[in-house]
Amino acid sequence: MCAIGNQGRTRSAPRNRRALALQCMSSKRQEGKRKRKANELILSADKRTLANQRRTMTEHSDLLEIVRRPLSPDVQLEVQASGEEYEQVQAILENEECKYPRLWYDGTRNIAIVAAPPSALHAAMVTALLSDISRAVVRQPGLSSEISNRVYQWAEMGNTRGRTTRGWDGAIQYREGNRTTLMIAVEVGVSQSYESLRAAISWSVCALRCRLGIAMCIREQGRGEAPDPPQYSSIQEENAAVDEAEEDFRHQLTERPYGPLVRDGVTWFGRLERVVLETYRAPDENITESMVLDPSRSFTIVEDGEFVGGDVPPNLQEVVLGDCIPDHILDGDEIVARPVKFFRRDWFEAQFQAGMVRTAGNRMRPRPQ
């Protein structure tokens, strides 16, 4: 009888284990459901909080109201705002995954800076400056590819120091393993006040401690009241009309290299009033983040629709290899001080005029709502 009893218990053991396994799986499924439900409740609560925050802010936030307005390219607006209000509006933009407008904050003045998307001219000149400086570095005689290949171009990005968050238009950085050093920061101002442009490039030099700041200030003469773009029946018609207009604009540039660009009696890009290229350096180590620097060099390139920059030095009298690559990487003071020659009239005019044409063409397209 004992043998029979033992066989029964032996046969029942696998069934018990299966039952325990099924019970364990069921418990895990129930636990998973509870966790998913809890996460859904948390996410739902976060969404409700954000929605409530948005509704509350909409009632009284000048900053959120301005961020919601359609902004013309290159426009920068300064709005008095607390740090808390800035963070709340920034959270709303991030939740909506908005690339533009960009939102920065000047903690020393309690000012939020609303930056509209760049125009084609703005973007073209940032890219041109970064690319030509980088190419001039790579072409330096005697510089190994191992060193020159660590020079990187960076597009617009934000940086925070203390209570201030700002962005640069572009930068040249040098990478050593997992360490990146900011060497040159670039700012281009189109329809931006000169004071604002100086403050932006000064912050990169003083707060971020870049070796050199380069700023280009572009002034387009007033075009009068901004015309409404033409109405098109289809995207194909729009593209064809803009392509035809841009070809006409290129022809106009052969006679008027710096505008205006006119189509059917409407000025889509005004005559260039002035283009100035400047460099900025920290005068010494005793600098503060809020300092606004004077330029170390300033060159007028275009004045009243005419090129006047024939005597601008190719390295702006000061851009050297040590501005692009840290001194300890280079061998000898002579190499550190070697000029980086990147500025040429043919390069400047080709890039600038292409940006003017694209900007004028984009102004003929319907504005996003």
Rank of each mutant, 00 (worst) to 15 (best):
A3Q: 13
N6C: 12
N6I: 13
N6E: 09
S12P: 03
P14I: 08
R17H: 05
L20F: 11
C24H: 05
N39W: 02
R55V: 11
D62G: 07
D62W: 01
R69V: 12
R69S: 05
L71Q: 15
L77Y: 09
Q80V: 12
E87P: 03
E94D: 12
P101L: 15
A115G: 08
P117M: 06
P117N: 03
M125Q: 12
V126H: 11
I133L: 10
A136I: 04
L143S: 01
S144Q: 05
E146K: 11
R150Q: 13
A155R: 06
M157T: 13
T160Y: 02
R163Q: 11
T164W: 02
W168L: 05
N178T: 08
T181D: 08
M183R: 00
Q192T: 12
E195M: 01
S204M: 00
C206S: 02
A207Q: 07
C210N: 08
G224L: 03
S234P: 15
E237K: 03
N239T: 15
A241M: 15
V242I: 15
A245H: 06
E246A: 12
D248I: 01
T254D: 10
V262L: 02
G265H: 00
G270P: 00
R274P: 05
L277P: 05
L277M: 15
N286W: 03
M291G: 03
L293P: 01
D304A: 06
F307D: 13
P313M: 09
Q317C: 07
L321A: 03
I329K: 00
I329H: 05
D331M: 05
A354F: 07
R363H: 03
P366A: 11
